[in-house]
Every structure is written in C-alpha cells, then in structure tokens.
Nucleic acid binder design. Structure first.
Lengths: 323, 323
DNA sequence: CTGAAAGCGCTTACAG
DNA sequence: CTGAAAGCGCTTACAG
C-alpha cells in the first residue's frame, strides 16, 4: 500500500497525492482533486511509510522523550500523558526511553531519527550539540532556574526552600534533612537540600542536620534519635516515601507529631493523605509544567512561538497534620 | 556521514562496507579488509541511517513497548529497565509508548516501524493481526493464564487467590474486597476480585463483600463500618494504596488491626513496610517476568528459541503485622 | 574477492 | 494545473 496505489486509484500522479496529503496550500489544486485523493487514501487505509519519509526529509514525526533512571512517580506519568495528548494534536507521537547505565545516547537518537528530543534529566553538552547538528530540536532540563526557552527548569531548590520556610513559619528553629538512600536520586536530593540550607541561612538559623534515611523503621528510628539529641524539631524529607519512613521512626521512638517533631514531604502521593498523622507535603503543578514543555517542544520545532517564561508558581505546599 | 564515506575512506565499495558492518559471514572477505572497514567506521563515527535501513528492509531495531494508561508502579519501571538492558544486548532499543484515550494504535506502529511490538496490556485482535501482517513480531499480554509463548500472562486471579487464601489461613471466614476508584484499573481489579471470589467458594465461604474505597480516610471509614455490620474480619485490597486507606479507615473507626480486622494489599510499595501496622502484601517477581518477556520477544523475532513456559511462581505473599 | 546497479517509498524542484 | 525524474542511504542479487 504505497502512494503509487493511491495515485493510480485516484487517477492522478504520485506528485499530486503527495501535495494533497501534505496539505500543501501553496500549490494550486482543484478542490475536487483534493477530495478525491483524500477519499481514496482513506478508503485504501493508506499510511505513508514513516521510514521513507524520514529518509527523504531527514526527520520523522516522533518526539523522543528521554527519562532518567530514577523511579517513576505518578507525576512523570501524568506529565507524559499531558505531553502526548498535546503533541498528538500536532501530528507528533511521543516515545519514551528510559536511560539506564551509561549507554551512549547517540545510538538511540540515531536509530529513532526523531524530529525532537526532550530530556527530562539534563543532557551532556556533547550529546545536545550532536543532536542539534543532526537537525534535531532539543529541549533540555535543568534542576535550577534557567531563562532559556529551550530548557525546562524544575528548580529543585525552590522545593527545599518551600519546605524549610513552612517549618520555620510553624516555629521550628533547628531543622533536619532526610536524604534518600538511592544514588540515582542524588542530583535531585542535593538541589533540594541546597534549598533547605539556603532558607535556613536566610532565616538566620543553623544549617540543617543531614541524615540518609532508608525506607524502613529501624533506619528512621536511628535518624530520629540522633536528631533529637541535636535539638531538631522540624524535618524536611526528600520525598513522601522518606517522610513516611520518618513518621514511622518517630512513632517507634514514641515522639509526638507535630508537637515534638514536625515532618514535611514532597510529591503528595496517595499514601501521604492517609498517613497518621496526615503528611504535609509539596505538590507540583504537573499540568502547568506539561503545558510549558509542550510549548517548548513546539517552539524548538518552529511550530509555535517560544513559550512565555515559566511561572515560578509550580509548587504548592499542602499543609496537613504532620506540621 | 554515510556508508559511501566509509567506503571511500577505506578504499572499498559500499557493498563491502555493508557486508563487513552487517557481519555477513556467508560472504568471503579478507580479515584485513574487515578490520580496515571497521576501524574506518569507528574513526569516522559512522552510524548507519536507521531510516534508510528501515526503508530497505521494512523493519528497524526498535522494539515498541505499549503501556496501558494506568498509573505506573515501580514494578513497571523495573520491568522496562530489565527488558531494555536484555534486548540492548541484541542490538535492540526499547521505546515505550503510553496509550491513552482510544487513539488508534496503527498510526503509532506505522510511524515507528518497529521490528517487534510488546503490549503490556491486551491488544485488540484487529490491531495484533494488522501488525503481524506488516511483518512485525507481536507479543501480547493477557490478564489470565495463557499457554501461548507469544503471550505474556499475568494471572491477576492468582493474586486475589493468594490474598484470600492467606486471610482464610489466618482464620477469617467473612472477607471483603476493597476495589479502587479508577476506571483504568477496572480490568485488573475485576480479575483480582474474581480470584478472591473463587478462593472463597473453594473454602466454602460466603462471597466477598465488594466496596469501592477512595484514597481518603472518610471513604475508607464508611467502608469499614459497613463491613463490620456484615461481620467482615478480613479485607483484600486491590493494591497497597487502597490497603493503606483501609488501614486509615480502621484507625479512624478505632478498630484493632489485625485482631478485629486484617488487611492485605498488593505491590509492596515502600510505604507498606513503614505503615502502622506494617502491611501484609503480595510481591511480584518482576525479574522473572522480565526474563520471560525478553525471551518471548526474541523468540517472536526468531532470534531465540521459544521461552520455557512461564513459572506460576511469580507472586509471593509477604506476611507482616496487618494480618 | 569486489563493484555497478536496482530498488525500498517518499518529496520536490523542474518541465510541461 | 499535473507528471517524469532525481535522490535521501541503505542492502543485495548479479556480474565480473
């Protein structure tokens, strides 16, 4: 089933079929011809060969979304869903690739020949350059603020700052940071910790006590006891899972939450809401992020204007009983 | 950077380059020539054009993995990671696509021209047929037992049965099933419930009381009260999130776990271990599943023998304090 | 042992 | 308004 079939069946040339199906308004064709070709193509169930098209034009309708190797949260899931839907409206299909190990990225994008690559974790500069040279639209991600329109900024420091500010507002003066026991998360954890640290300095408080907390009660209990000896009363956890472990540790150590120690997480996972006490957490406006990302991809493809600068307002604190 | 460049630089024809780079052992070439071509290709950083290759051969090195629209758990995440690594050893790249809405699948696979499509939720028969006709290796999934080697069976009923058997073993005679409030999960929830139902019948117990439980305390509390009036003492929850909500409901209703009511979940998410009381749950042997899937894909591509029949032993009960 | 040539299906200058 | 032809980069019979 090729464009030649559609041409023969419609009584026109392949050229005309191509013009019609690609909606080339700059070339003059009778409406009757257009209708006929479209109808024939539909009747025959014709789909242009993506391989041939990619070979010819050097690009495809595929958007490659490269994910880092950290655990998917429901957030990423929803982000991709939004993105897929929005880009589908422009005839683009989103394909997700989960990066693992240090296998070279170029093998992949060369194999896919996407029109755009969207990295949800930072790219190596060499990779980004190579892709751009190959004519691929590149949208990268940074964990910090970044004004460039082709960079998606998820300012992790803001998350940490939000957590710390909230604890300070609740009257806590000695804070701790509960870090995750997972190397893949280190880059994120470090940025969030930097946010907590910065906020402490801003409020004239001592630097936060940093402890790695495994996702089990014993580890959390140890951490809690150490913190108590240091006078800690407020804990910012890397995410809700770590925060729930901390809550369990506090329970095991018979400490009252939030009167003796307050805890704040990040993500607002379902378990946070039904924890005892319900967990205060930071919620991300995934929809707003997805909208920005979509606009950034379309702009990089010159299919739309550059997106308006990203709103800083993508994080919200959800106060609950744990603080 | 094309194969012509490599040919010129190596002083051979494009034919020879193609033979060497595709490891055609059936054609006789001097070792010296092979070495030279390989070295030149490496030096020039040559990567064959996937588009041209796909156009020529009608297939690519891409394996398209189609995911359903339900929330990713860490399980899916790890499954894909295993799969990607194993298939990469055969020169195949895994690309993930998350299906949403009812957008037609054929648009996607025609655009990607993968050599294989792996569905992690069941395919429509028409879709599977169309893909096979296009020469694509298809590996499907079913929620039930299935002996076919090109079908990945995740017998959801076994999960429900495992939960129910455990509760019965702990002495419970009146069971409830806590269903999720998410349409996308209905197919899974129904199969798991069928497993619980079947187990109850097998043990000569009344059918389980089925209640939808939202992920909040109020909803869970209502469900718990209703169950108590029906004499329920054992609850099988769709997954750990629902189970944690049930635990919260029981706490709100001042019922003791496990003495008055026992709860068992599915997935073993991190929060399950640190819940109060720690949540009994069902754990899936993702590694075994990934190994089977890999073998199934390779077999469908005729790159390996059909995999041995799937072990039924992919689920394990993790007993903790909640039962 | 190696090379010239055809052809995969498409798009697009160019010539009617 | 429409068609014949070139060419994207590859693989593979076929002819030396």
């Amino acid at each position: 089933m090729t464009s030649a079939d559609v041409a023969r069946e419609s009584g026109v040339s392949r050229t005309t079929v191509s013009y019609v199906l690609n909606d080339r308004t700059d070339v003059v064709l009778t409406d009757a011809t257009r209708q006929r070709v479209i109808a024939t193509a539909a009747r025959l169930g014709y789909t242009p060969s993506a391989a041939a098209r990619a070979l010819r034009s050097g690009r495809s309708d595929l958007v490659l979304c490269v994910l880092p190797n950290w655990t998917f949260g429901p957030a990423i899931d929803r982000l991709i869903e939004h993105l897929s839907t929005a880009l589908a409206a422009h005839g683009l299909s989103v394909l997700v690739h989960i990066r693992h190990g240090d296998r070279p990225l170029d093998e992949l994008w060369r194999a896919v020949t996407p029109c755009a690559v969207l990295g949800l974790s930072p790219f190596a500069e060499a990779d980004a350059k190579a892709m751009r040279q190959a004519g691929i639209a590149v949208v990268g991600t940074t964990l910090d603020d970044d004004p460039r329109p082709d960079v998606f900024a998820v300012p992790q420091t803001s998350i940490g700052a939000l957590q710390a500010d909230h604890l300070v507002e609740r009257g806590h003066r000695v804070l701790a940071y509960a870090a995750p026991d997972d190397d893949r998360l280190a880059a994120f954890a470090d940025r969030r910790l930097a946010g907590v640290r910065h906020a402490c300095a801003r409020h004239g408080l001592p630097a936060p006590h940093v402890t790695t907390v495994d996702l089990d009660v014993a580890s959390a209990c140890d951490a809690v006891r150490a913190w108590r000896e240091q006078g800690v009363t407020g804990v910012a956890a890397y995410n809700d899972e770590v925060a729930l472990a901390v809550l369990a540790g506090l329970r095991a150590a018979c400490l009252d939450v939030p009167d003796e120690v307050a805890v704040v997480g990040v993500d607002d996972i379902p378990a946070a809401r039904v924890a005892t006490p319900a967990l205060t957490t930071v919620w991300q406006a995934i929809d707003a992020q997805a909208t920005y990302l979509t606009a950034a991809v379309l702009a990089a493809l010159r299919l739309a204007e550059p997106p308006p600068p990203q709103s800083c307002d993508v994080f919200h604190l959800v106060p609950r009983a744990s603080t």
